[in-house]
Each structure stands twice: as structure tokens, then as C-alpha cells.
Design a protein around this nucleic acid. Sequence first.
DNA 1: ATTATTGTATTAAGCACTTAATACAATAAT
DNA 2: ATTATTGTATTAAGTGCTTAATACAATAAT
Lengths: 123, 123
Amino acid sequence: MPWELKTDRPIYAQLIEQIELKICSGVYPPGSKLPSVRDLAREASVNPNTMQRALAKLEDDGLLYTSRTSGRFVTEDDNMVCQVKNKLAQEQMRDFLEKMKRLGFENKEILNMLKTILEEVEQ
Amino acid sequence: MPWELKTDRPIYAQLIEQIELKICSGVYPPGSKLPSVRDLAREASVNPNTMQRALAKLEDDGLLYTSRTSGRFVTEDDNMVCQVKNKLAQEQMRDFLEKMKRLGFENKEILNMLKTILEEVEQ
DNA sequence: ATTATTGTATTAAGCACTTAATACAATAAT
DNA sequence: ATTATTGTATTAAGTGCTTAATACAATAAT
């Protein structure tokens, strides 16, 4: 899963989201060590300061912690990771439904269109 | 439907999206006249230059046209409006499914969670 | 003890976005 | 004819984001 950074939003915000995703989806499991700030920055083709900013926010949220000079780690509290995952899912669904309703679609239409897409993908 | 502007993305981009939504959902029907740049800007609590920028983009896309000093109008081509509506819906669904899969949810899970939300809302 | 690696902080520069304050041109309304 | 309203353009200033180039402190590795 490569880093996907668009130019229409602050990079640090996108980094926060994508690191959150990697934690929630198990790419970085609870308790595991993250690559160093410099390595992560190189990986994402981003300035270390920008990566540092994203990591600091995640640490502030409690999803990461720092062991002074040995590196950064994902929290060992897998309950917290699970909660974050569900929170993000709820946000995604809420935003999605909000926008589709604004576009003028009914609940049933939305579900049917999604089913159609999912069937197409499976074939 | 009030203007909802967050600070995490360029305002002009958000204006483009929200005007598109108003056109696609019938708030501004095909052929109808839009409020003036200055009025729209006041309505959205935004600088006229910023609103102008958003409108220029929509005009460039063909969704609006300008009649020099009598104002701006939505295209009379309701086919085009319909196409834009469907394009936006497809984008929303694609992005939504992408993020949910990144979070680690399966297709069936996604549909079930959405159904749950929709049932809760109806009650 | 020395070295390398870790996170962290600072400063300066460039860039895009936004606002404010104007101004101009065209034309609808009077 | 005059006035008001329309879209449009320009300039200057402020802000936040990003990068680059450093530097420092702490500690794991040697």
C-alpha cells in the first residue's frame, strides 16, 4: 500500500489519515515499532518535518508513543486501535451518506447503487 | 442548506463542490439565474474573489455560463447536469469503498453497517 | 569511550490561499 | 442620460503549509 498524497489538502493531514489506516488495518500492529521519522519521510517522499508533524498528532491522540531514542511504537492497547477503527468507519459512512443525500439520492437508491458496484467488482 | 466551510481544505474547492451539489440537487435548476458574485460571497461569508474563482471553474467546466452584465446562469442542458450528478455519485461511492477496504472491512460488512445506520436514522 | 541512530527544535525561504480595497467595463434599469 | 448592478482584474498584505539546512540531546550499538 503505497503513500498516496494529493495536492488539494495539507500533506500532514493526509499522512495522519494514512498512518491511522495502516495501524487500524494491521500493517503496523499494536506494540510494533515504526520506521524512524527520517525513513518514513523518505518512504513518503516528504520532508522529515512534515512527517514529524503528523506523528506528533498521532502521539497526541494516544495511538503512538515515543521511547526517547529507540523509536516510535504503536500503542499496545488493541482496544484503542479497535475503537479508532470503528470511529473512522462511522465517520466515513456518515460523510458518505450525507453527500449522497445532498446529491439527491434516497437510502434505497444508495444501497442499490453500492450493490451494483460491488457485484461488478467481483466479476 | 447552509454553506459549510472547513479550514482543512481550500475554500474555493469547497465552494465548487457545494455549488455543484446545489445545481445537481435542483436548488439551482437548469437555466436558472444565480445570485451575483457579491451576494453569493456574502451568503457564504467569503471574499468575492474567492467566490469568483469557484464560479470561474464551474463555468470552465460548462456547468455555468455568463451573460456579461445580467448575471450567471446554470446551463440549460439538463442532460449535462444529470451526467455531473452521476459522475459525482460514482466518485463518492468509489472513494468511500476504497477507504472502507483500506480500514479492513469486507463488502458484506460495509453493506450491513450502512443498513444498520439507515435503519437507525429512520426510527 | 566512541559512534550511529533516535526524536526534536529552529530558522529561512518559497508557495498557494485568502482577504481587503479598489478600479474598470458593460448593460439593465431608471 | 444617469444610475445601479453585473462580471472582472489588480495590488498588497497576512497566513499556513512545505521544504531545506542545520543543530542538539539522549541512548542504543560498537
